[in-house]
Design a protein around this nucleic acid. Structure first.
Length: 191
DNA sequence: GCGACAG
DNA sequence: ATCTTGTCGC
């Protein structure tokens, strides 16, 4: 059956997660108020590399430090917006799925590149086309900004694709990537 | 066997 | 992911 959010799912906050690379890994999490998109909480954690980058096993590399950062927040966010795929993964279980299941927090995946096939969505913001892999619809290629390369949205945990799409559009009033991702990226670079 | 392969 | 200048466009 389709992943479905808890009854009455109406997130007030959304967290963006990202990992920056330097001498060590820098995991950052930024919690935004969905009404204002202001950062209301954040945390950073440094960690040594403990797993190589292996396509398909991305979560083994970046999730541990991200979970550590989440643990440093004052309050758990209502939904996690992950930097990578959720269901849109060869094994149907990308980073966003791991993050949601391990924390019990609803989650979605927003990738910058697609793993499956898709037709280019219309040029206008909000347009989308199905992202297909192995003959299955695993997510959506969503245009968050007119005339700019789409992002790839997929289900993580306890959130359906329509809800995930709405959420991403709410987080992209101006730029291609969600504000959550942008803020976490900024923080992971020490700013 | 060869190429592709989230970040 | 990260290394990096200028350049085109709103």
């Amino acid at each position: 059956m389709e992943p479905r959010p808890p009854a009455g799912f109406a997130p007030r906050t959304a967290a963006g997660l990202d990992v920056g690379y330097g001498e060590r890994l820098t995991a950052a999490v930024c919690v935004l108020d969905l009404a204002t998109l202001d950062v209301v909480d954040q945390a950073v954690v440094q960690a040594d590399e403990s797993f190589p980058y292996v396509p398909g096993l991305f979560a083994f590399r970046e999730l541990p430090p991200q979970l550590a950062a989440l643990g440093r927040l004052d309050t758990p966010p209502d939904v996690l917006v992950c930097d990578g795929q959720g269901l849109a993964h060869p094994r149907r279980f990308g980073l966003a799925c791991h993050a949601g299941v391990l924390t019990g927090i609803p989650s979605i995946g927003v990738g910058k590149t697609a793993l499956g096939e898709f037709e280019p969505p219309g040029p206008r913001r909000g347009a989308w086309t199905p992202l297909v892999d192995g003959g299955e619809v695993v997510g959506r290629a969503l245009r968050t900004r007119a005339g700019v390369k789409p992002v790839f949205v997929s289900t993580g945990h306890l959130v359906d694709l329509d809800t995930a799409t709405d959420l991403v559009l709410r987080l992209t009033p101006r730029y291609r990537l969600p504000e959550t991702t942008r803020q976490a990226d900024r923080l992971s670079r020490g700013r």
